[in-house]
Design a protein around this nucleic acid. Structure first.
Lengths: 356, 356
DNA sequence: CTGAAAGCGCTAACAC
DNA sequence: GTGTTAGCGCTTTCAG
């Protein structure tokens, strides 16, 4: 281990040229004779030289590294999807990603930002910033910042998904199948005041709930508060699995069983399926279930119909913004990318077969 | 963006000392007067100085960065678990992890190794090396290498799990519940020749299958080849989900339904549950199911009994080896860490209630 | 077309 | 105790 590293100087010496010339060959610059180039390339081969990106980074004051702050890859695969997309895209451009799972802890988010600054990343992706202050710190350190999924009010480029359209599509699907009593299990949407204060922050909850309400209204189906269960699903210890279970139990106890359930994450939906399994109800014969995300859905019994979030694309788009920013050196206005969701129909939804 | 970075020199100037003194304060060395230290600390505060780890790394020829090559976090959460553990442990010591998902592609694994070398990581973790050649390249570049889960024959430190004991525990559990006809769904184990050639490589498959056979033998239950389905589950497109489904269908068609099914991953088990759901069999009343990994298991219906792999611990252990190696400078023999699994009993296993 | 040399930001050896 | 300085490996003027 730790044999002596081959440096540019070694290559130069072997090729009988200066280090400047070696650099020129490496960077494919034109002002080198074919003969010298050959000689240098041979020397590179012989020595097994590998460029030192650390030294390059120091010199260029650019590390081609992006820091990615995630709320936690485990157990919610949503974040994995985004991370994977970001990684692939970065790779493609010769960049790297430094990831940091903060597991909903603002302290850790803070220390992630600090680490990234010290490591001189060129940009930070927040896949859901927890704390506006931490975004500000990154910005003040002169870093490019991209906010993904739930941006704060700070002005940076953002990448979000169109949750409204996705929800509408799901509810329409259920209505088309003949369902009328459609339950909604989701995070508490923001009130009007909250929405004013943080227009983007809680947009997801607002859009999902609004999509539900609007679609029912559009079909003259009255809202039934007994069918609406709003809770803090996402931040509970198991990301809403047991909360989904209990919510479904509550719906079953209430007497008038719903025709269908729309849950705003696959994890919540997984809890719903468990509750239905426990009382031997059949899906979709007795009740249809729709999830959101397309993470756990393929693995459940039956495979779950769900609104797919474009996770990988979200990661890719964020990284593309970074790369583009560093390619064209002029300052441009923060871009806001909004990607579309897609309904994936599987076995958990169908026409009602039996009467309740 | 890109305001001028504050450097040591700036701090030194403001504090009216030399850069060496600032370094001494930063590294908490003793040979500084309390007064100077105060002054320097104030200057650091005022300027908002943050150490430049890139420059540090160049100088020290140590980046405090670990490259982590994974087969793919999506969709198998096993890798996420390992990655998360590695990340946490690294963080704790002020190190960072650069991750690279290679998705079972040896080319990508190769390019991951090259990237890591160029970025001058201090060590590479392979969570399942794909290709021995790539491990060798890393070793030849003078990097510390740790092989996790399925080491090649190359001599490096390794981290593995005791798959034999885990399997024995699971089968014992099923036998205790009164089951006799226990099916085995798993990867094809190596033949004796293969085992000789690559003693560690296919150890997992061998251990799991041997654990199954030995436990049955121990209870005088004869092996029934109709109950054993060996296949290339792990490398199929969906990690064995549909293969698990079809394997279960085949078992059901064969007439003599098994009392219980042992699947060597939660994903395969998820496919098994789907097949059972489709024919309206009840779990565990009609048949018990056990998985492996403890990844998807909590989300399935019913929640799956499974053999938990110590994923996070595996990641942590690997990183700890790296840190320890760089703390104590002497060369030591490669360590081999073997962690234990744990049976997590949930709702998918129970005494047989009905007769088939 | 090629080379010499300065400097990116930090640290450690050596001098005072 | 504190300062001076060389140098980690690379790139980029500026000369030649």
């Amino acid at each position: 281990m730790n044999k002596k590293q081959v440096t540019l100087k070694d290559v130069a010496r072997l090729a009988g040229v200066s280090t400047a010339t070696v650099t020129r060959v490496l960077r494919n610059e034109s002002l080198v004779t074919e003969k010298t180039r050959k000689r240098v390339e041979q020397a590179i081969q012989q020595t097994g030289y590998r460029i030192n990106i650390v030294a390059q980074g120091l010199r260029a004051r650019q590390t081609k590294t992006i820091g990615h702050i995630l709320q936690g890859t485990a157990p919610n695969p949503f974040f994995i999807g985004v991370a994977l997309g970001a990684e692939q895209e970065a790779l493609y451009h010769g960049w790297s990603i430094l990831a940091f799972n903060v597991q909903h802890d603002p302290e850790r988010e803070r220390s992630g930002v600090e680490t990234f600054i010290q490591r001189r990343v060129d940009a930070i992706l927040f896949t859901t910033p927890l704390c506006e202050e931490n975004v500000r710190i990154a910005l003040e350190a002169g870093l490019m910042v991209i906010q993904v999924e739930r941006p704060t009010a700070l002005s940076t480029p953002t990448v979000t998904a169109d949750n409204y359209a996705g929800t509408v599509e799901a509810i329409e699907h259920l209505i088309t199948l003949g369902h009328r009593r459609i339950a909604y299990l989701g995070e508490i949407p923001p009130g009007p005041a909250e929405r004013k204060a943080q227009p983007y922050r809680n947009r997801i909850e607002h859009e999902r709930f609004a999509g539900y309400c609007d679609t029912l209204a559009h079909h003259q189906i009255p809202l039934d508060i007994e069918l609406i269960i709003l809770d803090r699903f996402y931040t509970s210890a198991d990301n809403g699995l047991s909360a989904g279970y209990h919510a479904m139990q509550k719906l079953l106890r209430s007497g008038k069983r719903p025709d269908a359930v729309f849950a705003t994450s696959d994890i919540i939906a997984a809890g719903v399926l468990q509750a239905l399994y426990a009382v031997h109800l059949s899906i979709p014969e007795d009740i249809s279930v729709v999830g959101f995300d397309n993470t756990y859905s393929p693995y459940l019994s039956p495979p779950l119909t769900t609104v797919e979030q474009p996770m990988e694309q979200m990661g890719r788009a964020a990284v593309q913004m970074v790369i583009r920013h560093f390619q064209q050196h002029q300052q441009e206005e923060p871009t806001h990318i909004r990607l579309t969701t897609r309904l994936v129909v599987r076995g958990s939804t169908g026409p009602r077969k039996r009467l309740s």
